[in-house]
């Protein structure tokens, strides 16, 4: 079986995979990083979103071998080493942007990407960006609120830094 190597959450990892092994399978079953979830099999739900070389990607939609040599960040790599939540994670908790938690890792990864690309998104822009992430619990209201709050906080942090 072919060998694949990549950097996941700052750690160099490698393992044997089949050609058909998906990146999400390598993360969950190969590395036991079970924070990344599988909610569908048609690349629709977004529960499996991770960052590959800085871009949001549905990890059910690429083979592990396609990520050979890549820098991968999963939900396990978002909080600080001391366990402190990122601004986006903390906003989801404060604004009750999650219930069962299953779509949450994908939501946090997508929201983190959004705020990197667009630091001050409108509500419509947030809703449009989340189009590829399905949540069945929250009705999206509090997810949108959480992302708006995170954007405001990151914005004021930037102003303070300048």
């Amino acid at each position: 079986m072919p060998q694949v190597s990549m950097t996941v959450n700052g750690r160099k990892v490698s393992g044997e995979v089949e050609g058909r092994t998906l990146l999400v399978e390598f993360l969950r079953e190969g590395l036991r990083l079970t924070g990344t979830h599988v909610g569908c099999d048609t690349a629709q739900c977004g529960a499996c979103v991770v960052h590959v070389n800085g871009n949001s990607i549905k990890s059910c939609n690429i083979f592990a071998l396609e990520a050979d040599g890549a820098e991968v960040t999963t939900i396990e790599g978002i909080a600080g080493k001391d366990g402190s939540l990122s601004v986006v994670q903390a906003a989801f908790q404060t604004h009750h942007g999650l219930q069962c938690g299953y779509c949450t890792p994908g939501m946090v990864m997508t929201a983190t990407s959004l705020l990197k690309e667009n630091p001050a998104p409108s509500e419509a822009e947030i809703r449009e960006y989340l189009e590829g992430n399905i949540c069945r619990c929250t009705g999206y209201h509090n997810i949108v609120k959480a992302i708006q709050a995170a954007a405001a906080e990151l914005g004021s942090n930037r102003v303070a830094a300048e």
């Binding site: 079970t34 924070g35 990344t36 396990e76 909080a79 366990g83 939540l85 994670q89 908790q93 938690g101």
Partner: peptide, 9 residues
């Protein structure tokens, strides 16, 4: 939420 938000569910 802490475990759900950090992938520790």
């Amino acid at each position: 939420d802490v475990r759900f938000l950090t992938g520790k569910g």
